[in-house]
């Protein structure tokens, strides 16, 4: 197994592991805050996976600077990076709205345990 394959295994393995850890937290934890943390971990895993897909062996950042015009062939794929930039912002918005809903739920029920929040009425 050569180095490139090890890097590939490491990046994909880490991102898939992060997604699984986040899903585990979302599915089994009782505290709403921990569920939101799990969602954020899933976000991070997906971002790492997308960036990893765009990687080129020995690649550089897709930014042109004076004196290095020959670097075009080594540049990594900029499209996943742009998409991840969008995804980070959307993930931030989702987290903010979810946390505000949790504040509202806590104000009404005085608990964050989802087993104790039984009624659907606020």
């Amino acid at each position: 197994m050569d180095t490139a394959e090890l890097i590939r295994l490491g990046v994909y393995g880490t991102s898939i592991l992060l997604i699984l850890i986040g899903l585990y937290a979302v599915l089994t934890k009782k505290s709403l805050i921990k569920i939101i943390i799990g969602l954020s971990i899933i976000d991070g895993g997906i971002h790492l996976l997308l960036i990893g897909i765009g990687y080129v062996k020995g690649g550089t950042a897709p930014i042109f600077s004076p004196g290095s015009e020959d670097a075009v062939a080594r540049m990594v794929d900029p499209v996943p990076q742009a998409l991840v930039l969008t995804a980070i912002v959307i993930g931030f918005g989702v987290t903010a709205v979810a946390l505000s809903l949790i504040i509202r739920l806590y104000r009404h029920h005085n608990t964050l345990n989802i087993d104790e929040i039984k009624n659907l009425k606020w």
């Binding site: 897709p62 930014i63 042109f64 600077s65 540049m75 900029p78 499209v79 990076q81 742009a82 930039l85 969008t86 912002v89 959307i90 931030f92 918005g93 989702v94 903010a96 709205v97 505000s100």
Partner: peptide, 29 residues
């Protein structure tokens, strides 16, 4: 110089307008 910026603002500019709208909606919500 920055290709990512060119994609976000120019090639996919409409997408960025939607993204900014989503952020605005999150703040309003």
């Amino acid at each position: 110089a920055n290709t990512v910026t060119a994609i976000v603002v120019n090639f996919r500019g409409f997408d960025t307008l939607g993204e900014v709208t989503v952020l605005f909606l999150a703040a309003t919500a």
